[in-house]
Amino acid sequence: MLKQLLLEIYKADYVSKSNLAVKLDSPVPLVEEGFAELVRLGYLLEDASLNCQDRPCGRCPYASMCQKEPLKTWTITEKGRALLEDYQAAV
C-alpha cells in the first residue's frame, strides 16, 4: 500500500486524502497513517508553510497578520524517487 500511495501522490496534481482513499480503496485515516509512515521512513517530506521555531506565534508581533492555518505541502525525497523508479520498473 505504501508504494502505491507514494506513486499516487507522485502522479497527483495535488494531494486530496479523500481522493487517494478512493483510489487505494482504503479509509481516509489509514491513508493519513500512510503519509505519516512515509515521512517517518524518509520517502516523503512534509513542509509547513511557516517555520518560525525561533519565535513562536505567541511572541511574534506579526502573528495577527500571518496565516492561521498553514498550507501544507509535500515533497517526495530523493529516497522516495528512487523507490518509485524501482517500483515503476517492477510493475
Binding site: 496534481d13 495535488y14 501544507k72 515533497t75
Partner: peptide
C-alpha cells in the same frame, strides 16, 4: 524543486 500541495 517539485512539491505537491495538500487541499483540505
Amino acid at each position: 524543486s517539485h512539491f505537491i500541495m495538500e487541499l483540505p
